[in-house]
Every structure is written in structure tokens, then in C-alpha cells.
Design a protein around this nucleic acid. Structure first.
Lengths: 200, 200, 200, 200
DNA sequence: CATGAATGAGCATTCATTCAT
DNA sequence: TATGAATGAATGCTCATTCAT
């Protein structure tokens, strides 16, 4: 009621509060979906997290699935950006190890709620709809990025190595979550870094 | 009074349909929960899969969670038995590779619905109740089994290796499911077998 | 399975376990209905209190209402007997005061669950069926008994006094129950005894 | 859009159907609960009486108990107001007799469904929850009001008299209901008025 | 656009009653 | 007669979605 302006100015081309709300909804959705899973999350949960009236959600998203889709897309954007940011490391090995370190830094959150992408995939893969396919896109990003790094290292088996790396991460994220033990990730990360170092 | 044997064949000392139904319900639950996930599965789904009237489910299980719990327990039993059956291989290495092969053999199902344990853990870890804890028990079984094998190989880092192996499997199961590509699992399995062979 | 005989011998004219069970069911029903009310009591509750398998109840009573009816009838019998037993007091006044004292002695139970007759009437009066009418019969007993006593005292307004007395008791039973305070009944009983003494 | 005024007439500053519906639900609940009792009344019954779709009830009340609670509270309000309105009589005796007369005027309804407060207390006292306690509050109101009147008459035993009066009313209400005979209340009311007159 | 309210299909669960043996 | 099991209608409650303003 007070600082609507502050909250809502966001881009310079005439969009107004709508933009802010849409983003708030997506951000809220990402948080709540990560913490609770897709099926267990109601639109009301998301609306509340975003501080948006429930009825209003439908001016931004036609259905709940649409909003979930948008949350996944936003997630994909962030992942892409994060991966891009890793490019400044000079060598492919350095980049791969930087990825590992980055993921490890989130171990506390992971131990509580699992890897956001992994959780989404695991849950939505059961469904045979657009949402399931979106998840696959999400998972492709780090795999292809890692494949490029391994490729830059001259590895013929770059794809296989990339898959192995990401699988290891997804797996250890799941175990970290299952046992609520962040240390599991720390140890596995060290192992993976050593592994990367050992290649070639 | 008539054909007890034919309908209820189960044991020779008076057990009747009750036993069969309880098991049918648990089996039905395991199937449907694997295929659809816990939250998306209604009691009606399970009852239908087990060919039991919905109202009757409550004669055997007090709540839906109770039934899910029983399904998890049954799953744990099977896992334990399966692991025990691997003991007949002579060397720890042979046992570990046999495990990998066995898991790989299920790649078609995994590619459609994911690893049953992994899916359950991923979904139920979000909850902070008994069910979540049951999942952890489920996941412990293969890890501790693998740890024993690596230990028998004389590895000091047996636990870490066990975690790494199971993590790799869980991760590749997730990717296999996400991309609906059983081949992913085949390739990763080869890699893991080679890795096991390379140890010591 | 073991001491069926011991449990079921009950009368000497050839009746067997049936009699014992029927009575146990009725007794169980009376207890549980008093404590929980009619609508809140399931057949399973009663069967359990009577230690009789649920399915078996239907060999003794066609419906739940039938069993409730029988419980009310048994209650009526007991009330009639109790009132008859009061006849040994020499004067009507003594009899009336004895009734008051007797009711007061149950104040602890009344404070927890109310007057059994009152509760039944209050709940079943809402219904327009046989059960409601049974309750009226139940309530008539003490009124008519009291009316006879007041009549024997030579009161022309015997009926009115009887109604007033029973009403006072029913009312104080309700308040005693509502406030969980047995003392309320003690005090009102003293008042009613004084009132009886003051008549004529 | 059309006849909002007629349907929702309630206040002139923008209040809308919400207000009307909440009240309609409470009013409907009061009626139906009085007529059928708490346990026998389904939410659908109440919703129908209030002409509100069942699912919508939950927009106004979180649970059935919540709605019952609200109905009790509304009842308490009305009782309080009614008692306050009796204050305009000049003497305590006049007030007490006015109360008796007022209650007697409802004898037709009472003979069909019992005293609303009494029924609620009788039924809910069996439960050991918030609802039971609310009922006690409801019953306290007339007792304390009567106590004040007897106190104003200089009676040291004001509380006891108040309890006796309300008990008599509750009891006769029960008998009136049980025997479906409004005359019972008429006669007892006369007796109580005489009794009040006879005091001091 | 915004919002509180409305709607109805769906779900877990209960329970009186019936059935098969 | 005895009994565990079966059945299905009903109930309280949830929630995605829509409506009215």
C-alpha cells in the first residue's frame, strides 16, 4: 500500500506493476515448488509466497501448470546464466571444478530440499506432458555445458563424461537430501574434483 | 466353502483371501506409486490396480500413508533379498558388478518411471514425517551392502566409494528417466563396471 | 476358545452363549451410549465394549437402532426396578427423598456424562421415530412414580409436582454436566429435599 | 448485478454478499443444529439451509466445528441481548418473571426441538473440546443474570436460586420436548412465577 | 487490471450393513 | 451360530479455476 512504486518499477518500457507481480509469482513459485514439490503445492501457497491475491494469479498465468512452466523456464535462465558466468575460468578443467564447487556451496539447501532441477525432473518425469519435457530441457543445459568443457579438453567421450558428472551430482544431491547430511556432498565433490583433475 | 484352494492358494493351513488382498494392495500400491508418484496417486488408483473396492482398503490399512509405508517396507524387503542373492558371487568385485548389471537390466522401466527408490526418496524427502524416514532406510540398504563389498576389497574409503556408486546409479537413473533414454544407463553402467574393475 | 462355558453360563434354562452375548451387547451399548451419545457411537464401539465381533451383532439385533432400542428398554427395566425398590420406605415423603438421594449419589458420573435418560431424550427427541417414543416411555417412569408419591401425600397437584421434581433433577443434571461440577447437584438436592419436606 | 439491494441489504457502504452469506450460514446452522442436533447435521444440510454451495462454506469457516462454534457464539450474543433487554423492568422480580414468560412463549418450538442451549450442552458436553467449553459459556449467561436479579432482591443464596431456576427451566424444556407437550411448560412456568413471587 | 468470493469435482476416510464360509 | 471380510453410500474437506464487480 505504501511503496508500490519502489516495488514495481522494473523496466523502462511502460510495463507496470504487472511485471513485478509476474516476477514475484515466478520467484515465489520457484521457492515453494523447491521446498514442497509440485503436487503438494497449491496455488494459494504460491500466491501467498508472492504476496499476490489468488484470484489475480490467473491474469498472469492461465493455469497452475503454466505457472510451473514459467518457474521452470526462469530456472533454466538462471542455470544458463550461471553456466555462462563460469566461462571466465581459463581452462575447461577449472570451469568444471568451479561448477562442482558452486553446486557444493548450496549443500545446506540441497540437504533440506534436494536439488531443484533434480526434484522437478523426478516428479514431473512421471507425467507425460509439456511439463515433463520442460524438465528435460532444464537438465540438458548443464550436461551440454559440461560436454563442451570435456570436449575442449580433447576428450572423445565428452558426452559420456558429462553425463557421468551430472549424474554423480544429481545422485549425491539425492542422497544428501535423503540423509539430511551436507557432508556427503562435500566428500563427493572432492572426489569429483580429483576425478576431473585425473582426466587426460 | 467350495474352491478355497483355487482362489486363495496361499498356504495350507487356513489362510484366506485377507492375506491375498493385503498383498495385492501392497503390490498394486508399489506399481502405481512408482508410475505416478505418491501425491498424484489416489487411493482409488491403488484400489483399482489391486482390484479391491475402495472402502475395503481401510480394512487393511488405517490410512493412505499406512499403505504407502507398507509398500515401502515391501520394497525394502525385496531390495534386501535381492542384495542377499548377490552374495553368491565369489568376489566383492563380482558382486558389485552384478549389482550394476542387475540395475541396468531394469533400464526400460527406469527410463519410463525412474528408479522406484529414488523417486520415493525424492518425493518423500520433502516431507518431514515417518514416510521420509522410511525412505532413508530404503536407501541405506544398497549403500551399506556396497560398503561391505568395498570393505571386503580392503578399501579404507569403502563408505565413500559406496556412496559414490549408489549416487552414480541414482543420478543416471534420473537422467535416463528424464531423457527417456535407456541407453544412457547402459553406457554409464559400462563405465561403472570399468571403474570397479580399476580399483585396487 | 478356552473357557466359553465359564463366560456364557448365565441362566439355568438351556439358553447358551447367545443370552450372554445379547446381554453383554446391551450393557456395552448402555455404557458407551451414555458416554458418547447415540450419533457419535459406532456399532464397532459397542461391539468392542461388549467384546463381541462386529459382524456378530447382527445376529442379535437387526439394526443399530434396534440395539439402541434394546439398550433403552433395559434402561427402563432398571429404572422400574430401582423405583420399585424405593417402595420399602414407609412414607411417600421418605420415598421421594430417597429418590433424590439416590440420584445425587451418581453425581460424579452425571457430572462427566450427564443423566443417561436425559441425554438419550435430548438427543433422540430430535428424531421422529420409534426411538424418540421409547425415550418418552423412559421418562414417564419416574414422573409417574413421583406422581403416585405426591398423590399418596394427598396432593391434588401431584402430577404437576412430579413434573416439577423430575424437571428440576433433569435440569440440574444438565448443569452439573455442563459445568463438570458435582457440587451443583449436591446443593440442589438439599434444596429439593427441603422442598419435599415443606409440602403439606 | 441486478437486485443486489434486495438480496444483500445490509449496510450502505459497500458491504456485499460475503457479509450476508456468513450470517446466512450462521443462521442456517443455528436453525438446523437446533432441529437436528450437531452430529446428525451435515455441512450439506447447513449449506442448503443457507442456500450456499457446500464448497463455499469453507471460504467462511475452516471446519465444521468452526461453524458450529460461530453458531454458538451468535446464540450467546442473542441470549446476552435478550437478557439485557429485560433490564428495563423495574424490579428484579419483574425481570425474573419476564424471563420466565419469554421462555414460555417459545414453548411450541421447544416442544418440537427442545431448548437450543440445552440441546447443544447436552450433546456437546460429551465431547472434551473447545465446543464443550463454549456451551458452558452459553449456559453461564442466564445463570449469572438470574443471580444478579436474586442478589438485587437481597438474597444471600442468589447463586443457588439462580441455578435452581435455570435448572427448572432446562428440565421442563426437556420434558416438554420429550412429551411434545407445550402445556407442560405453561404449567411449570406458572409454578415458577409463583415461586419467584413468594421469595422474601 | 485487481480482488474477494464462488463453484464443483475430487479425495481420504468412516460406518452401517451384508456376505461367505 | 460365529466371524472376518466386503461393500458402497456418505461426509468433511481441498483446490484449481472462474466470476462479479
Amino acid at each position: 500500500m505504501t511503496d508500490l512504486v519502489g516495488v514495481e518499477r522494473r523496466d523502462g518500457h511502460g510495463a507496470r506493476s504487472a511485471v513485478g507481480k509476474r516476477e514475484r509469482l515466478i520467484d515465489g513459485a520457484r521457492q515453494v515448488l523447491h521446498a514442497q514439490g509440485v503436487e503438494s503445492t497449491t496455488l494459494a501457497d504460491i500466491a501467498k509466497a508472492a504476496d499476490v491475491p489468488v484470484g489475480n494469479v490467473y491474469y498472469y498465468f492461465k493455469t497452475k501448470d503454466d505457472l510451473v512452466q514459467a518457474a521452470i523456464a526462469a530456472h533454466a535462465d538462471e542455470v544458463a546464466n550461471t553456466l555462462a558466468a563460469l566461462e571466465h575460468h581459463r581452462t575447461p578443467k577449472a570451469r568444471l571444478k568451479a561448477l562442482i564447487r558452486m553446486l557444493t556451496e548450496q549443500r545446506e539447501l540441497t540437504s533440506r530440499y534436494g536439488c531443484p532441477q533434480g526434484s522437478l525432473c523426478s516428479e514431473l518425469d512421471k507425467r507425460d506432458d509439456e511439463l515433463g519435457r520442460s524438465c528435460a530441457q532444464l537438465m540438458k543445459l548443464p550436461i551440454e555445458w559440461a560436454e563442451r568443457q570435456f570436449g575442449a579438453m580433447g576428450r572423445r567421450d565428452a558426452r559420456e563424461l558429462a553425463v557421468a558428472l551430472i549424474a554423480s551430482y544429481q545422485g549425491i544431491a539425492l542422497l544428501t537430501n535423503t540423509f539430511r547430511d551436507p557432508e556427503l556432498m562435500t566428500r563427493e565433490a572432492r572426489r569429483l574434483e580429483r576425478w576431473v583433475d585425473s582426466l587426460n
